[in-house]
Nucleic acid binder design. Sequence first.
DNA 1: CGACCCGTTGAGATCGTTCAAGTAACGTGG
DNA 2: CCACGTTACTTGAACGATCTCAACGGGTCG
Lengths: 267, 267
Amino acid sequence: MTREAERPSGVAPGELSRRPKRDGDGNDGQTWAPATGLPPSTDAYRLLPRHRKGDRKIAAGRDLFSIGETNTAIFNLLSGWVAIYTLLEDGRRQIVHFALPGAVMGMPTSKGAQVSYSAQALTEVVVSVIPNSVLAAASRDDPELSMRLASALARDTSMAYDHMTSIGRRTARERVAHLLLELFTRYRAQWPGDRIEEMAIPLTQEQIGDATGLTFVHVNRVLSTLRKEKIVHFHYRRLRILDPDRLIEVAGVDPQTAMSWFQRRSP
Amino acid sequence: MTREAERPSGVAPGELSRRPKRDGDGNDGQTWAPATGLPPSTDAYRLLPRHRKGDRKIAAGRDLFSIGETNTAIFNLLSGWVAIYTLLEDGRRQIVHFALPGAVMGMPTSKGAQVSYSAQALTEVVVSVIPNSVLAAASRDDPELSMRLASALARDTSMAYDHMTSIGRRTARERVAHLLLELFTRYRAQWPGDRIEEMAIPLTQEQIGDATGLTFVHVNRVLSTLRKEKIVHFHYRRLRILDPDRLIEVAGVDPQTAMSWFQRRSP
DNA sequence: CGACCCGTTGAGATCGTTCAAGTAACGTGG
DNA sequence: CCACGTTACTTGAACGATCTCAACGGGTCG
């Protein structure tokens, strides 16, 4: 049941460099028929209404949208991994969120607003693109819709707060452990039956650094010691959890909470 | 950030002098008239419907709600300042957001969910409390409501991403400058006419540290140098901006963006 | 087979923390 | 209105976590 399609195997034909640049020209995702390689309950991921011809396939390394663009549509991720990130003028980069299938991206903050962050495909990705007008119409038909949307956004905010706490108050070791644990549990929540303790994480050590507020050099050192301690083994984008209990401990997560993560079913 | 000696030895647990206690008695008392009084257009802040008897007044230092509580109502801040924060088990604290009048707090991430953060009144505060049931009913009456709510939440997420970028990728000096600039512009957006460059910020240096991921000692040093350089003067909760241009420069904010902040009218 | 990423390791510099000992403002009760 | 206790702010010295710079090794792909 392990999904080859989900693997970052064919990653980025040279799109990902040490300092990924902003993808200026945007992307030219071709329209695409409903996907293969999706998790079991694909339809559950369609929080948002389906738009005719709205599915797009985007290559790894490309941006789905970029900071400063005026918001004309919102995106519902159907498959693949996406990094939401911001840039400082001198090139420093912060990955603020990893979007997994089911995620909603690009919700406008007000009418005609510009997004204040960018979204980069980490793997090949399929998104459902819903123009704002379609969304507005759909929410008239289905009054519950925008409330579900609001809940999803509240979830995003909560996750952002959690991530922020990690960056602001945890040590490097704790941050890395916390991120790996988070990604592992979120990923696993998508295949509830699966008992594997190994997964493909389509991230370089530099991207882990960008997410945790560290340099890739230091991420490497932390990962090395975690490996020597036989807690986790992360190498060339494959993650193996060797000692879940100690990982939870290092991550500084309440075991209670950690277990609930293993249940939860949210993007 | 050493693992153990996190709590000042000798001090009884729960009596941490510097660490504000969760909830409990709270140091009610001081009120900060300047920053607390209701802005001109109070009604504009009622993004959410008014609930009969729903207005509550809360003393400075108290928690509006705490992590782990089951979510039964959402809050619309009418006046005063609120800190949204999280705690790690050993007492490390991260302030993830400062809520100003107009803010919506405590939106549930799913039915019957628990909030994953706490909210502490920094000044005396007035909030409108809207039970979930009332919200649901109101959103049936006013289909636009939940869409406006979703936009407000998207705004929260954007702000969280911005703050996270600051903590993860900026130097201490940049972080402090950025926070002061942000608070100043958000505050000023509430009194559009006002031309003052001085304001009361109801924060201690420790709270600034908790928001920026620094220790209060280092916050103090940064503020000292900013004062010596005649950029900003922050002393005993009063902020005076001496050199706006250089502050914008130090904060590493695009002047273009900074100016737009001075226009924007959002909590 | 040759490029090109990506990962690894060492040495030294730096930024921010920790610990410690003050001083200044505030608030309270006499 | 003053004395006192408390909280907030300030400063110095030493330490250490993380960064920077630099060189090299390993994997993968065209």
